[in-house]
Simulated scan of single mutants.
Amino acid sequence: MSDFFSAFADLVAHLADVLQPLFHASATAAAIVLFTMAVRLAVHPLSRAAARGQKARAKLQPQLAELRKKHAKNPERMQKAIMELHRKEQVSPLSGCLPSLLQLPAFFLMYHLFSTAELGGEPNALLGHSLLSAPLDGRWHDALADGGAFGPAGLVYVALFALVAAVATFNYRRTKRQMAADPLPVPGGEEGQSVPGMGAVVKFMPLMSFMTLVTVAVVPLAAALYVVTSTTWSAVERAWLYRDVPGGAGAAVPAM
Rank of each mutant, 00 (worst) to 15 (best):
D3C: 02
V33C: 06
L136A: 13
V12R: 00
P93C: 10
E118R: 03
G128P: 11
A13T: 08
V202P: 00
S47C: 11
L207Y: 15
A222C: 01
E190A: 14
V219Q: 11
L241D: 04
P183W: 02
K80Y: 01
A117P: 02
L119G: 05
V12W: 01
P185Q: 12
G128R: 05
A29L: 03
Q90A: 13
A42H: 10
A255N: 10
L85R: 07
A200E: 06
E76S: 13
G138I: 06
Y111L: 15
Q90P: 00
A239F: 04
E66A: 15
L94I: 12
P187Q: 03
L46E: 04
D244N: 12
L184K: 14
Q54C: 01
K73A: 14
C97S: 08
G197C: 11
A58T: 07
A31M: 09
A143G: 09
F35R: 00
A235G: 12
D137N: 14
P99R: 07
G197M: 09
L19Q: 07
A153Y: 05
G96H: 07
A168G: 09
L60Y: 02
Q178I: 01
L126I: 13
G188L: 03
A38F: 00
A72C: 10
A125D: 12
L213E: 05
G128A: 15
L127Y: 01
N124G: 06
M37V: 13
I32S: 03
M256A: 15
G188F: 07
A166F: 08
G192L: 12
A223W: 03
A153V: 13
L19R: 03
T36V: 09
P187R: 08
Q90M: 14
P185W: 13
A72P: 05
L221F: 05
G192V: 08
G247P: 08
A42V: 14
G154L: 14
P45D: 08
T28M: 14
A235Q: 04
N74Q: 13
K70G: 06
T231D: 08
D17A: 13
V214T: 06
V91H: 09
A38Q: 01
G188V: 04
R40S: 03
A38S: 10
A149N: 08
A42L: 15
G147L: 14
P75V: 06
Q178V: 02
V33P: 05
M205L: 11
L22W: 04
K203T: 11
F114H: 03
A223F: 02
W233M: 04
L131G: 03
V218R: 10
F35L: 14
A166N: 02
H129G: 07
K55T: 13
H129C: 01
V228G: 06
K69Y: 04
M198W: 02
L46G: 07
V195R: 12
S6A: 15
L221N: 05
A251Y: 07
L34H: 02
G154N: 12
L163S: 10
F107W: 01
R174K: 10
V219W: 11
C97R: 00
V218Y: 07
A106V: 04
T36E: 02
A200C: 07
G148W: 11
E66R: 09
